[in-house]
Amino acid sequence: MPSDPASVPFDSGKTSEPNHVLEFPGGYTRSVGPVIGRFLSDLRDGRLTGVRTKAGRVLFPPVEYDPDTGDDVTGEFVDVGPIGTVTSWSWVPNPRKTHPLDRPFAWALIRPDGADTALLHALDMGVFEPGAKPPRALRTGMRVRPRWRAERVGGIGDIECFQPEVTMITAPSRLEYRLQGGRALDRFLEGIEQGRILGHRCDVCGQVIVPMKGLCPKDGVPTSEEVELPGTGTVTTFAVNNLPDPRAPEVPFVSAYILLDGAGLTMLALVAGVPADQVRMGMRVRAAWRPREEWTRSMANIRWFEPTGEPDVPFDEIKDYL
């Protein structure tokens, strides 16, 4: 029976407990007939079943008649799905209490493989904050599968909802290493720890390689003659980096090739202490060491290179080091 309107004012007016419930005790007892019954029985078994029409179409969910002609359907039941294609959808950013899911989700028309018609069901796209916009992955044509309830009773709710096919898995990957830098690098860093920049002179080409590798990459021979280089040098070429990086203080930062005085090749380092747009090829720079008490066995002892104020080196003198 409808409730008495006169009773409403006694309520607070806020959405509290309903003051009237219409519920047929125990639920209606409906007979389903052979076609829907077959479908629901199969559904309870975890299978999707359609039925073929005389024209050859497969209806899903199955009904007893051809919706186009009214003809009886044939008695031929066909397994379909369980994978299906979304033919249309709507997105529910704030679900109602009656909805099957309590987080944003889609309603979708889903046509299982092997069927010619579609089923309406909920489509769970994952975890979203209330009010979320439709996710980009939600689209017509997407492939979905049913998420079955563990306890099934023979109802459409035996499928809790559909969900996208698995298209990606996250694969955490972590390996632990105990690395050593190697003898040449160890020796180089030992120098850096003492505020010295060390290189090796190659016996064959006579060039000084810094940081040394214990061999000359060009001549393929071992090197051992140590040479200490000054902290001054020349910028040969550089990039102005506008993409932030944790290894640099700010954006833009300049990564430059620096030819240390006396070295045969350049090394890559940060240039600072000057606006990025004033860094030049040929600019003279010196190493800016951190305070001695902060020194460790690391290249971080040199904070960056900064201008010396000397005149630029002519391009001709650096062009062979590019």
């Binding site: 190697g182 003898r183 040449a184 160890d186």
Partner: peptide, 25 residues
């Protein structure tokens, strides 16, 4: 165990040795 050599440092003497053995550089 790790003898403190990088992969390149491990390899270099082997290359030197085989060049010397064959006389091919």
């Amino acid at each position: 165990e790790d003898a403190g050599l990088s992969e390149t440092e491990l390899l270099a003497p082997v290359i030197t040795e085989i060049k010397r053995a064959t006389g091919v550089t």
